[in-house]
Design a protein around this nucleic acid. Structure first.
Lengths: 137, 137
DNA sequence: CATAATCTCTCTAGCGACTATAGGTTCAAG
DNA sequence: CTTGAACCTATAGTCGCTAGAGAGATTATG
């Protein structure tokens, strides 16, 4: 039997976050002590570790809900889980692409600025005048 | 004289967003028509275009506030603006780094999954068992 | 000039994934 | 039995908007 604090220390998930996950339906409401405090078992610990891991990998809460549902049906085909992971991977790749374009544009703006005063600062000028941009955005 | 809708069409910033920027102090409260509707001038248009541009480049609202303040003092040294842009660039690079690690891990997980059922699905197994991960996260 | 269509106004609430605070209760150690 | 840490619920705040309600203003058309 673990208290919510034990669970928190063992998984690295903060106490309020555990309660939040319960509210979001990622973990089922825990049993309670006589004084109404949450008491967890090993399975809850595993579930929470699963959630933490999925969050670290950037899955959002609805996706995690789906993954949990799938993981409880070992006999089902795993295409569903693959799909979720692949979709997420594409989303991550898209974000990277966008950020790389941003990076390039910012690099260009920053490196161009040899001015001494704001008047001829390339950073400010680039922001004021879209025509100075390389790419569309 | 532009209405808020005119401004919106000309800058691509949605009407409620313009009002939001006013609330956040990025644009000064506009003059009003007799019927209390906002009326803008060319300078407001330029200011809003500046903001839009900065947002497209990912600057957050406090940073934009600072950039605007700087742009109104053309005689000041531009180190401040450079600093803001450089800081933002570093933040973007960090995000990219994190996402690239995520991408690698997800790629590995997805590509390993040759299972047919959830029981031996690598996606689910990897989430359940941190030991299957390549990198720390 | 009347009416209809479109715009605009303010205010409030919602998104996602937490985090923080307040005010109170329970638990475990000494 | 007392103390202090951990726990409880409920609410509000974070960021950058977006959506909606209900009312008033403006503009275009007949």
């Amino acid at each position: 039997m673990y208290s919510i604090g034990d669970l928190s220390r063992r998984t690295g998930v903060k106490v309020p976050t555990i309660r939040y996950y319960e509210q979001m339906g990622l973990i089922s409401p825990a049993g309670r002590s006589e004084g109404n405090q949450r008491r967890y078992e090993r399975t809850d610990l595993e579930r929470l570790a699963f959630i933490r891991h999925a969050r670290d990998l950037g899955f959002d809460i609805p996706a995690i809900r789906d993954l949990i549902a799938l993981s409880r049906h070992p006999e089902m085909p795993c295409a569903g889980a693959d799909r979720i992971a692949e979709d997420h991977l594409s989303a991550v790749r898209e974000k990277i692409e966008k950020l790389r374009k941003l990076e390039q544009e910012l690099e260009r703006i920053v490196s161009h600025c040899g001015g001494h005063s704001v008047e001829d600062c390339y950073v400010i000028r680039a922001l004021s005048d879209h025509g100075l941009c390389e790419a569309e955005h």
